[in-house]
Amino acid sequence: MLDVVELECVRGDRRLFTGLSFTLQLGELLHLHGHNGSGKTTLMRTICGLIRPSGGEVLWNGESCRKLGEEFTAELTYIGHRNGIKEDLNGIENLRLHCRLAGAPITREHAWEVLERVGLRGHEDLPARVLSQGQKRRVTLARLLLSEAPLWILDEPFTALDMAAVEFLQSIIAQHVERGGMVILTTHQQVSLTRGQVRQLRLGWKADGNV
């Protein structure tokens, strides 16, 4: 269970949001809305622990995420704007490396299989720098297929993806929520995420902070 308590974030001179509180239960998806610059990315990065909030805190199962440290990040898969893949490594290497860092190494065959599932058949052993934006994104998203973490935080996961990939990703997210996982995501695309508990949070100038 994720609790966000009276969270406040300041970027530069601007206070993005203040007094933001909500709770996310297992099996719930939180869809963040808001115009550009309303603080969606900042909120997500703050929940991850990448940004230190200027007020309030984030609790995981009732304990402060900041104090939990690695115990919390082990429960979390974050996909941000940046893909987090190395241009000079190929898809297989990138994926296996990520899994080793996440503490769950996978075999070469397994990585091969997963990349095939995300639609990179025939591109598995090309260095990421020759892949298209959409293909790089797919390498990144392949992590979700391997992720055991209950909490997924996805910042604009659908950008650069084609229709088929968007649909595939939606089904993965839906499955994760169905299995009792939690998802926080932003997207400007119209996405139909029907199953599971979908909740909406709107950030903006007059954000009162309530879900």
Binding site: G49, L50, T73, L76, N83, G84, I85, E87, L101
Partner: peptide
């Protein structure tokens, strides 16, 4: 390339 954030969150 974003691998730094992934390292922080590892």
């Amino acid at each position: 390339d974003g691998t730094l954030e992934q390292m922080i969150l590892a």
